[in-house]
Design a protein around this nucleic acid. Structure first.
Lengths: 335, 335
DNA sequence: CTGAAAGCGCTTACAG
DNA sequence: CTGAAAGCGCTTACAG
């Protein structure tokens, strides 16, 4: 692979001049510039980004550590992050933590070893020592979707409270009174917040959330199924199961089907996070939709502000309820 | 951030010795080694991977360029690629081409600028000059899923012919005679091969594939919907629509629903690629399942063989038919 | 067993 | 406007 030296030699100039041309430095004579450019073209020269990074101490790369790539919410988030980053001249390296704190640490470490310019993370847990260190080390960092308290890191997330309240109102209006929830890990903010929002909304409508109507999931399909089985084994099973992510609702549906029960006649179903195929399930699933694309883009903008020495503010967007037929509503209000 | 010099100073040794300890070089006295290690711990030192890469000319990083991250098939592929690479001591940087040749080129270029050790690609098109150059430049490269002819690059892919034949047999047995197909881009191997396999199987069962029963899609949901609309507008619409990927079948379903028609009573539906939620659609969708995880792992192993100077063979795995109810089969054969 | 030195491919102050 | 030189943080052949 041709190096800058080869180009310099080929064009009859010094490597400094080649570098200047490559970096659009103004003080290069037009004909020198042309000579360098044709040498570049002729040799098919491409600057070595590794060497450049070592010298300039910037990689123009962002790290993104997400909890689970297979979760369509995070896939979409990753996609919007990459799009916005690219538009702003950055690349992104994605690390998939698979909801495992140890893997998350692995990725954070590996990304920092590569000297990424900034780190976007949606933490799997409450914050490992490594993550906390990273947050305090001065590496530009932004939390997206989920966050960790006690560190000075901007957070870009969705406030689902309004939408959860709308969901509860919708369920109440349909006559449901025994509502159950499958929560995410208590170590995550989204795991806790969604339950809190649900509980407050229930209270507002004069309903309670007894302990046996709360099931601890881990944001993966299997846990949705397990918790649902427990709910359905209750002497008085709930009217509605609200799964707090799009994977657990799948597990819930599996269990309901396996027992030969029907949605919504036997149990109604709703989910946090909306995904394209919720329209195609039987029945279509009522869900709370996050502005995922905007979440990713806002997070990237905040992170790049930090990277480039500006200040960054936290951003809170709102979710909205998309009613379909899984809670018993008559056909009509399409998304 | 502490550098190797700081560690050397702290431990009272030369940077060469620190480097040796870090790289497990045998000829370091145990006590020297201990001293270095405690300096490393004390300073929280982490080697700069950028500097190391520049020096050793290897990044221990693989590039993966896929056609569409939002397509669950590719998401799963990316995940298995990352898992296997990590197990073998490599990181991976994913580039999402979004089915756009220009974006694909952008990622290939960017990845090569970063001097990744090897490139895994599932080409969006027939091969841009850049892609061809890359393939010939000596950068270790492996095609996965889709491939480009005329270059000496191992291919790790699925042969779907047997499964497509099984699908056609299944459809024929159910009494379907007018079968239609929504193909992918003709510039991709999977776009062409799936149609060929379908046509051969039809011939075997004495059925034809008239031009108006072939629709050109682009592997995205919208195109599935558009082609399905055309099929349904035919004076004699097909009995079955076979969408050659999991996104286009979604579009097909949308169009069928929008017209108030029912699957499989009015039109049957089948797809290439199986995804978890096909079990939950109404009705569950009959699909051809690829061994996606194994595909990704085999591709990584082949690529790393090349990277580490060994030879690599192409690998061909087989797909299998998973029958569900979307083609009219009575309940029974679950996946 | 350990150190001094060269060098990977760049960028950039400093001269001229 | 251009070049010579230093230096980013490492690794590694070469001495000793």
């Amino acid at each position: 692979m041709a190096s800058i030296k080869d180009v310099a030699h080929h064009a009859g100039v010094s490597v400094a001049t080649v570098s200047r041309v490559l970096n659009d430095h103004p003080s290069v004579r037009a004909d020198t510039r042309d000579r360098v450019l044709s040498a570049v073209a002729e040799l098919g020269y491409r600057p070595n980004a590794v060497a450049r990074s070592l010298r300039t101490d910037q990689t123009r790369t962002l790290g993104l550590v997400i909890s689970d790539v297979l979760n369509p919410f995070f896939t979409e988030l990753a996609r919007s992050v990459e799009d916005e980053a690219r538009a702003l001249g950055y690349s992104v390296i994605i690390g998939n933590a698979d909801e495992r704190p140890d893997l998350q640490d692995h990725h954070v470490r590996s990304l920092m070893d590569r000297r990424i310019d900034g780190l976007l993370v949606s933490p799997t847990d409450g914050g490992s020592p490594l993550m906390l260190d990273a947050a305090r080390s001065g590496t530009p960092m932004v939390f997206v979707d989920r966050w960790i308290g006690g560190v000075d890191v901007p957070v870009v997330r969705t406030d689902g409270r309004g939408a959860v309240r709308d969901l509860v109102a919708h369920l109440h209006a349909l006559g449901h009174r025994r509502l159950a929830i499958i929560s995410g890990p208590a170590a995550t903010t989204t795991g806790r917040e969604r339950v809190q929002a649900f509980r407050s909304a229930l209270a507002e409508f004069g309903m309670a959330l007894p302990a046996d109507h709360m099931g601890q999931g881990d944001f993966q399909a299997d846990s949705g199924r397990r918790v649902t089985a427990r709910f359905l084994d209750l002497p008085e099973p709930p009217d509605v199961i609200f799964a707090t992510d799009n994977l657990m609702v799948l597990g819930a549906m599996d269990e309901i089907r396996a027992r030969g029960l029907r949605v919504p006649d036997d149990v109604a179903l709703a989910a946090f996070d909306d995904v394209p195929w919720f329209v195609h399930t039987d029945p279509p699933i009522t869900a709370i939709a996050q502005p995922t694309g905007e979440l990713g883009r806002a997070a990237v903008r905040a992170l790049i502000d930090l990277v480039e020495g500006r200040t960054a503010e936290s951003v809170i967007l709102s979710a909205r309820l998309v009613t379909r037929r899984s809670c018993g509503e008559p056909e009509g209000s399409k998304p």
